[in-house]
């Protein structure tokens, strides 16, 4: 434990505001199957929000904490979904292995392609990530025999997970499925939190704040950005893998840049300078989309309007706006 951590730990009372908030957040997440039906939602919708929240948090690892903007994260999300779907359909009946396969497919490909990107910055980084992302969309779209093409990949079912005598029936029981999603979510988010708190995470923030200064301090900026991009891809494809399990379906639109844009808006709407903001943004987005698309066929205008309004009037996001009021 470093000196700074010790000092900070000593300075924080056991029941600090932050810890209470964190405990409350996890309580809310754990109790979802109990309170969501009461307010008129359904567990499937909550699962969707959780999974897209993970994707938005994964993106924000790069966008908010490294200062590098990827606009092609749907690619890694979709690869995670297809990896899981293909594994369940053709290879194994283990949902755990299939999840792992999805994570690896998206993460490894992201890591390899990331190497080509690390010297670009700003809009150019964004533009190249969009274009790269579309490669996988076209592959899934055209490779009919393997991926089902335009119709998406069907014909696989998530399978119950057994631990010795105990069986988690994620196939038939929505609540069990939700807890499986939450379990993977917790692992990913826990890892992200640890990474961001570590010296590596501090390095990323240093790059975000002033890349030139970080470089003068001897930080290998390209390498750190590549690492951050790769990790972000792994987390994002974990979200995609869960999405395939949630829907028993992998859709080519999960690879499309439209979803990339939606993931970015979730992160920004929630607050890209805060760790949990993107989860909140995803929850708001998913609920709004569900509500608006059931009300009108012109839901695209509403989503578009949401983009415009967030950019023009709430660029700091929901949590960002809250944080401004509390003095540092």
């Amino acid at each position: 434990m470093s000196e700074a951590t010790v000092l900070r730990a000593a300075a924080t009372p056991f029941l600090s505001r932050q810890r209470l908030g964190l405990a409350a957040l996890w309580a809310v997440l754990i109790l979802v199957p109990f309170w969501v039906p009461l307010v008129g939602g359904y567990t499937q919708l909550a699962g969707r929000a959780l999974v897209l929240g993970l994707a938005a948090m994964a993106l924000n690892f790069l966008l908010g904490f490294t200062g590098v903007m990827s606009f092609g994260h749907a690619a890694w999300f979709g690869l995670g979904a297809y990896g899981t779907g293909l594994m369940l359909r053709y290879v194994t009946s283990s949902s755990l292995l299939a999840t792992l396969a999805g994570v690896l497919l998206g993460g490894v490909l992201g890591t390899v392609l990331g190497r080509l990107l690390v010297r670009r910055r700003g809009v150019y980084f964004a533009m190249i990530t969009i274009a790269f992302g579309q490669i996988f969309f076209y592959i899934a779209y055209r490779w009919n025999s393997l991926t089902g093409g335009d119709d998406g990949l069907r014909g696989f079912q998530r399978q119950p997970i057994g631990f010795g005598r105990f069986l988690l029936d994620i196939q038939g029981n929505d609540v069990a499925l939700y807890y499986y999603l939450l379990f993977v979510f917790a692992i990913c988010v826990g890892l992200m939190g640890l990474l961001l708190g570590s010296p590596f995470g501090r390095t990323l923030i240093a790059i975000r704040e002033n890349e030139r200064r970080a470089r003068f301090l001897g930080i290998d900026v390209e390498r750190q950005i590549w690492l951050s991009f790769s990790l972000s891809c792994f987390f994002c494809s974990a979200a995609g893998a869960l999405y395939a399990l949630l829907n028993n379906f992998a859709d080519p639109m999960t690879l499309h840049y439209t979803l990339s844009g939606e993931i970015v808006i979730m992160a920004v709407m929630g607050g890209m300078r805060s760790f949990w903001g993107p989860l909140l943004g995803a929850a708001v987005f998913v609920v709004l989309q569900d509500y608006v698309s059931s009300m009108t066929v012109n839901w695209m205008s509403f989503i578009g309007l949401l983009f415009v309004l967030v950019v023009l009037f709430a660029p700091r996001g929901l949590l960002g706006a809250l944080q401004r009021e509390t003095p540092r």
Binding site: M69, V264, I265, M272, I303, L306, F307, V308, V311, P315
Partner: peptide, 10 residues
């Protein structure tokens, strides 16, 4: 630049 992308996307 994230804002201009999101704006034109919307």
């Amino acid at each position: 630049p994230v804002y201009s992308l999101l704006l034109t996307f919307g």
